[in-house]
Design a protein around this nucleic acid. Structure first.
Lengths: 229, 229
DNA sequence: CAAGCAGGCATTGCATGCAATCCTGCCAGC
DNA sequence: GCTGGCAGGATTGCATGCAATGCCTGCTTG
């Protein structure tokens, strides 16, 4: 049973790593709200293991920034302020733009063709107004560009940051208008990528992510910041 | 006793976190060679604790990328290939350049003054040909610029990547010539920063780090790649 | 009535023990 | 002589138990 997400180091093989992934998914899906207290025994019974692998998973999640570890006081799902979200989007934007710049120079023909095909597909999906499908394709399109950088460090780093905002990216394409804008921006980026225009790809990717960032922050929910425990 | 380095999450408070920092330092200092096998009992006796906190520290180091965790086979200090080092330097370069761009727009007057002062100091040190001191000042100068981005996510991310190459950056300024070049490049960067020239700061920082990357890779040691265990 | 404090409770941190897995060296068979 | 397989030892992975720390409740006191 392969996982769909790009696997963090040592994802498979031990219960602790499995649990780490499960908790990360739960956070990404919003099942675990920011600020929520993560009790070791509760998680242990939930996953049917002892506290030891839970503790190891929590420590790993902590160093990924997904949860905050308070010495002697347990762990809470990383609280998210609008400021922090902005910083995260900014960092992701910088990194993805760098990836796009390198991708313009480094992508293979097969990769460029995949990009073209996916973008064409996204056009149909957009015209059908299928928001969830567009969201998935959008993710995959960005992943293609990121991987196109051919730099595993950049890829890992962007993925790690993505996992910290995934639960806040939801409903970015709430409006069909934003979806159309997104498609148009993708078109410009991909044109630059295919033309091997590195600086153009960089500039347009930055522009695109700035727009996406604003679209996301407009959807900013009530933060429900449950005062921990 | 505060630590000089920017502290990873939950650095103080528990033995596991202390040990995590100690092992990270040992790796950074080169005491633990890449590829070296890290046995839990050996580390446990070395630090006078049981295996449990060791295991937690190792898992944290693993998700930082400093060590590689092989399920059921223990952990080894992350092996480093020239290619990987190149990817790391490239990613660091991208991020530091982004930091410089933001720093040009965001640094406070006090921060700009500190930058000016440190750069002036570095000139004296360079003229004295004091390589270790220049190396320290160089680190601090870059740290000032990174922090000048005022984006904690960028700052964290760059720090994490730095920790993965710190043991390979040694003797970058082996030659007085490279030190002089470095100083000159810093001068251009700082000029752009102080003039609030964001794009100039970005461009010059990229140029500077590309040069530093080549200087470091020329010093590439014999990799001694001890076949694990 | 508010502030401070002591005791009990819940939770985390660490040590230890056992089961599972892997590596090493040896031996039989080809 | 070489390859495949098999025991023995070593090491990791997880469960459990105990000590330490922090929180919460209820009482006391100014």
């Amino acid at each position: 049973m392969p996982r769909s997400t790009s696997l963090p180091p040592a994802s498979r093989g031990s219960r602790a790593s499995e649990i780490c992934q499960l908790i990360a998914d739960a956070i990404a899906l919003g099942e675990l709200a920011p600020g929520q207290h993560l009790e070791e025994v509760a998680l242990a019974t939930r996953f049917g293991v002892s506290r030891t692998p839970i503790r190891e998973a929590l420590r790993q999640l902590g160093s990924m920034g997904l949860i905050e570890m308070r010495p002697n006081r347990g762990a809470v799902v990383a609280a998210m302020t609008p400021e922090m979200l902005d910083h995260l989007f900014e960092a992701i934007g910088e990194l993805e733009a760098s990836c796009a710049r390198h991708a313009a120079a480094r992508m293979s023909e097969a990769e460029r063709e995949a990009l073209r095909a996916l973008h064409a597909h996204s056009r149909e999906v957009m015209q059908r107004n299928d928001v969830p499908a567009y969201d998935r394709i959008n993710l995959e399109l960005h992943a293609l560009i990121i991987r196109g950088s051919h730099n595993p460090v950049l890829i890992e780093t962007v993925s790690a940051l993505h996992s910290r905002v995934s639960s806040f990216r939801r409903a970015q394409f709430r409006s069909a208008e934003r979806m159309a804008e997104s498609y148009a921006e993708h078109a410009v980026i991909i044109e630059a990528l295919l033309a091997r225009d590195a600086l153009g790809a960089w500039r347009e990717m930055r522009h695109h992510l700035l727009a996406a960032r604003q679209a996301s922050s407009q959807v900013a929910p009530v933060w429900a910041h449950t005062p921990e425990r």
